[in-house]
Write a protein that binds this DNA or RNA. Structure first.
Lengths: 160, 160
DNA sequence: CGGATCGTTGGCGGTACGTCAACTATCTCG
DNA sequence: CGAGATAGTTGACGTACCGCCAACGATCCG
């Protein structure tokens, strides 16, 4: 009778909505901050993933990015023509392309990260440094375990 | 000499990139999970914000969403024609529209949240419940302080 | 050899915006 | 009262990002 938490507690907000919103806010801030020599968001994410995963077959990359292979081609073309990435044939299976982060790509990525730090600082300015670290860690762990079989096993449609 | 953290530590990943990526992953999962009676992401976020902020002038809402007023109109039209939201004139300034979350809107929002819980659970399955709570709290605090004067005072372009 | 797989190209469609211009109803201030 | 600002609205145009599909060459594998 006393707690009475019924009335739609103010904490029910979907974490997904928060993430979606924050993502948008981040993009807007980055754009309006006029980041100069800039990677577009997708390129940024792709390079980041490449740096972590090391050399990866194109297909694997597509899965990790949850991106249609045919669309990945375009993305990689941009990056490769800018010298940020290298595609080479897998000697074991010459159908495959192994995608590799080039030195220029690593540099560009670090530059972009440096530039985006301001935006990030602005966006997370309410959080204490250790909280930011926690946030970063949690997000990282969340995306980290996204790769293996994500959409699979959705047999029970509304079982959830 | 011993620590030698120079070589691009594996933790430098931009939090922005993580958020952006997670946001995309979330959308993809939600779509492929075939969420039935669904609000589109923008509607979802807008309703969420409305529930928290209570009745708000349209302009304020636009700022909070970082959305162009002219685009907000369309978004609100969708929501209002679905009965999820009500626009009424501000008696103190009849130019203004006060936007209010309708009962149906609250219900729709709660339904959507319930549906998205599965997706969210899938995405954050590596995190322990208390970690999820922490994440949620941190994100919420981050977006919460986004509203007042965000892009302003960007006078030093590369001072950062 | 035949079928499967990987990358690639191209086309079609859709969402989610930004930007700008114009117009109305309304407020505010001189 | 009249001039100018302000809130919302409408419409047009463009863009980024992306899904889906079909086809095709190169390659692998049985």
């Amino acid at each position: 009778m006393s707690p009475e938490p019924a009335v739609a507690a103010p904490g029910v907000t979907s974490t997904l909505a928060l993430i979606h919103h924050l993502s948008r806010l981040g993009q807007r801030s980055a754009e309006s901050a006029g980041v100069p020599s800039r990677l577009r968001p997708r390129q940024f994410v792709a390079l980041t993933l490449l740096r972590e995963q090391g050399n990866v077959a194109q297909q694997t990359l597509a899965e990790a990015l949850r991106l249609d292979p045919s669309n990945l081609v375009g993305l990689l073309n941009e990056l490769e023509s800018g010298g940020l990435v290298v595609r080479r044939r897998d000697p074991n299976d010459r159908r495959r392309h192994i995608v590799e982060l080039a030195d220029d790509g690593r540099r560009a990525l670090e530059d972009a990260e440096r530039e985006l730090r301001c935006v990030e600082d602005g966006m997370l300015r309410t959080l204490a440094p250790d909280e930011r670290a926690t946030l970063h860690d949690l997000l990282r762990r969340a995306v980290g375990d996204q790769l293996p079989s994500c959409t699979e096993a959705v047999s029970p449609p509304d079982a959830c």
